[in-house]
Design a protein around this nucleic acid. Structure first.
Length: 818
DNA sequence: GAAGCTCACGTT
DNA sequence: ACGTGAGCTTCC
């Protein structure tokens, strides 16, 4: 090769999310790693006095830096990131103002995010006498090496002493990079030549029956077999096999195996269904789009039950025909096993499934199938948008209005925006599907930015369910103080008497299991985060939802010392209790955070309900999505209003979407469905329109409201969140920033705040927010970002963190609600 | 993010 | 003169 002795260099973005390190560093690529290092590779590099993980973002043949060091190691056989994803990382970092490394980390499976461990150990020339000042350290290190953190915690240890001992060569400090990548190993058993086995059998005494049987097994089938399977087939125990291994007749063999979470699930192959006339019309439009070289976004607005999924499946089949790949995003996929089954049923092993119910290892294996080109369809929740495909032809976002497509923590990307970028990059089609599109999506469609396709008929002419609104104020007036209206009770009874099933839906606000003193009303908050602690029944502890702080449940109130301190059970629990009081004979399955934390418990509970092992499924938001059970003919909503009054400009839209979705769960098959919605706000258009099942009327009313109050899509809305460990300093800085923004951009931008963020402190960092509202036609984001970068640089306060939230999916504090 | 440096302050 | 902790720079 010509460039054999030519040195090349790599630009590496190092795993340190801080402003001064938010740029590539140059490293020499050792000749031995020449082939292995590529753009997107995950590498280990020396960084100062430490070792760190980083990603290669560029490869070049020269380097200006005089003291370059070399890459130590490449960590994966295949680079985890493609060149496209590295480029996408730049876009995300810029768009959401985050460090480049954070953007890159967001795109890879969790196991690839390295864990660092600092280990302290004694060297050979360490003597007990050297540690006369800290005998405890010596005795403990004598036994084994210790974690740095633990060493620092020892009472008789000083940092400076440690430093000195390192210099004297008495102790050593190692940085271990734990690669959390684990590949599942399966133990196989193999055997020596059959002819030799035959010989051995002939020498074995008659009474070694099992051993003879095992050897005979390998004579018949000489190929290696998983140990587990062998034990079953010859009906023996592990120790008998071990014996044979010790005799050198058989051998252990470790084989790497992909975990397959769906290995034990039998999935029936399905054939494309015949499309209705309306579906056919829509499909031909989508298909035409798949063959245009440039990217286009399609908004598919189809009523519940109009057969959107079948269209997705057929569009994907077309894409696969063209040797291209497809991503399907669904909200919270673990909750919709039926959906996965449909995809697996149509495309079999070509489908990789990435959902939150999988372990980190399982997720990694699914992801690798994509990276290594063994799969062409990825189906998953939000983060599946980063599936490392190289020939993307189609991206589908089902239920595109769902808020779960917005990443809650930094970088706060919206999967829809990322999808748009990727679709454009590949010239692929982006298909957004929903029965209740997001306001901004529909607005884009009306403006001709998206192509709008509509499905207004249900397949097989199934009727829409009948929706009954119940005014709960009336119930109270009539002396019914239960949480079940007369009407809902009656419907439940009828439904169950008919041998059908019901779903009860409790729309709950916030975190429900908290502790309160009944005497003085005191609640117990996290000392670092100013958020109410959540009660955990399992070990009687209180935990912080944000930082993990845990404490024992006190027996008396810390404020007034009253013993009447109680935790308030989850809403669903109370509903269940009341139901059982009225109707003790009903079988109820309750689904909420308490009953579904264990892996696979979702499927278990849903499975049981599907087999009609219960009459009623009772749950929160989580049961709203994608359930499809033929026997369900009744859906009840206990209180429709809880969501309506959240301080969020989207609350009306969210309520409508949620209620529509829940209603869609009733009567999807032969029996007609019935929906009972209980509410205290019957006059609100969002609840009215659900009952009418009139989306376009809702859209009009919401459109007018947004326009009048100036909210998206009629304005740009950006939330700036500033965090700092020092409250006073943060107040000063944010005040200054607001002033500066006002004088620089105040003409065009409305600046609201600064005010304390919804959670004013998390992990000992105070949080203040400023909201920016501006006319949508002006592209001001660029100017805002420029100004912020300027401020951050000038303030020179490395404790100050600025987080920008661009897609308007955040709560607006009541103070700012206009 | 964290090691390693400088610098100011306090101790012997 | 030296130990100690706090702030600041640097990392290729």
């Amino acid at each position: 090769m010509e460039n054999e002795n030519k040195v090349s260099y790599a630009e590496v973005v190092v795993d340190v999310p801080a402003t001064p390190t938010d740029r590539p560093f140059d490293y020499r690529i050792p000749t031995t790693l020449q082939d292995a290092v590529q753009v997107g590779s995950r590498v280990q590099v020396p960084f100062g006095s430490q070792r760190r993980i980083g990603y290669v973002t560029r490869i070049k043949s020269n380097c200006d830096f005089s003291r370059v060091r070399s890459i130590i190691q490449v960590m994966d056989v295949m680079p985890p990131l493609t060149e496209e994803l590295v480029e996408l990382g730049d876009w995300i970092a810029d768009e959401y103002m985050c460090h480049r490394i954070s953007a890159l980390q967001a795109m890879v499976p969790a196991v690839l995010r390295g864990k660092y461990q600092k280990l302290v150990s004694l060297t050979e020339n360490a003597q007990a006498a050297d540690f006369s000042a800290s005998p405890s350290l010596y005795t403990r290190l004598k036994k084994s090496s210790l974690d740095w953190e633990e060493v620092c915690k020892l009472p008789d240890v000083r940092l400076s002493w440690l430093r000195e001992w390192v210099q004297q060569g008495k102790i050593q400090i190692e940085m271990k990079i734990h690669d959390r990548v684990t590949e599942k190993k399966v133990r196989y058993v193999s055997a020596i030549e059959p002819s030799q086995l035959l010989q051995i059998i002939s020498t074995l005494p008659e009474r070694n029956k099992k051993q003879r049987q095992i050897l005979q097994f390998f004579i018949d089938k000489p190929e290696p077999i998983p140990l587990k399977q062998l034990l079953i087939e010859v009906n023996t125990t592990r120790s008998t096999i071990t014996k044979c291994v010790e005799e050198n007749w058989l051998f252990w063999e470790e084989r790497q195996e992909n975990r397959n979470p769906y290995a034990n699930v039998e999935i029936l192959q399905t054939k494309p269904l015949l499309l209705t006339k309306e579906q056919q019309l829509v499909y031909s439009q989508i298909e035409r789009n798949l063959f245009t070289p440039h990217s286009e976004t399609i908004l598919l607005h189809g009523v519940t039950g109009s057969g959107k999924t079948e269209l997705y499946l057929q569009a994907i089949a077309k894409v696969l025909d063209k040797q291209q790949e497809a991503i399907v995003l669904v909200p919270e996929i673990s909750l919709t096993p039926q959906m996965v089954e449909r995809f697996k049923g149509r495309f079999g092993d070509q489908v990789a499934v990435l959902h939150s119910g999988l372990s980190h290892g399982e997720k990694y294996d699914e992801w690798r199938k994509i990276r290594e080109g063994h799969c062409s369809v990825a189906i998953g929740a939000r983060s599946a948008i980063f599936a490392p495909f190289t020939r993307l032809g189609l991206i589908i976002i089902d239920e595109e209005h769902e808020s779960s497509y917005k990443q809650e923590d930094h970088p706060k990307y919206h999967a829809r925006a990322v999808a748009q970028w990727r679709a454009k990059h590949h010239g692929a089609t982006l298909l957004l599907g929903s029965a209740t599109p997001a306001m901004e999506s529909y607005y884009q469609a009306e403006n001709g930015e998206y192509r709008l396709l509509e499905l207004s008929e249900r397949v097989q002419g199934r009727p829409f369910p009948a929706i009954e609104l119940v005014d709960m104020r009336n119930e109270l007036r009539q002396g019914n103080r239960s949480m079940f209206s007369k009407s809902l009770q009656r419907e439940l009874q009828r439904c169950i008497e008919r041998g059908e099933q019901a779903v009860l839906f409790l729309n709950r606000r916030g975190f429900s299991t908290f502790v309160m003193c009944r005497a003085c009303g005191e609640t117990i908050d996290c000392p670092h985060c100013e958020i109410t602690l959540t009660y955990h029944r399992t070990n009687d502890t209180l935990r912080c939802h944000y930082c993990g702080y845990a404490t024992q449940l006190p027996s008396t109130c810390p404020k007034c010392e009253s013993p009447h301190i109680r935790h308030f059970g989850t809403g669903t629990q109370r509903v269940e209790e009341e139901l059982l009081r009225h109707f003790p004979q009903w079988r109820i399955i309750r689904m909420d955070v308490d009953t579904t934390t264990r892996k696979g418990s979702h499927q278990k509970l849903l499975g049981a309900f599907g087999r009609h092992e219960a009459d009623i499924l009772l749950g929160t938001q989580m049961i709203a999505k994608g359930l499809d059970f033929p026997l369900v003919t009744l859906v009840g909503v206990i209180t429709a209003d809880t969501m309506l009054h959240l301080p969020d400009f989207r609350s009306a839209e969210r309520t409508f979407q949620l209620l529509t979705q829940v209603s869609g769960r009733a009567g999807r098959h032969q029996q007609p469905g019935k929906v009972v919605i209980q509410s205290y706000s019957l006059d609100h258009y969002s609840i009215r329109r659900v009952a009418d099942q009139n989306w376009s009327e809702f859209y009009k009313e919401e459109y007018d409201t947004r326009k009048k109050l100036l909210y998206p899509p009629f304005c740009g809305l950006v939330q700036l969140l500033f965090t700092h460990p020092d409250q006073i300093k943060l107040l000063q800085i944010t005040g200054q920033i607001a002033g500066e923004l006002r004088s620089a951009l105040g003409q065009q931008i409305q600046i609201l705040g600064p005010v304390p963020a919804m959670i004013p402190r998390i992990k000992d960092r105070y949080r203040i927010q400023i909201l920016l509202k501006f006319p949508e036609e002006v592209e001001l984001i660029g100017q805002i970002k420029k100004k912020l970068r300027e401020i951050q640089e000038r303030s020179n306060d490395k404790h100050l963190r600025i987080i920008i939230d661009r897609d308007g999916h955040f709560h607006i504090p009541e103070k700012l609600y206009i």
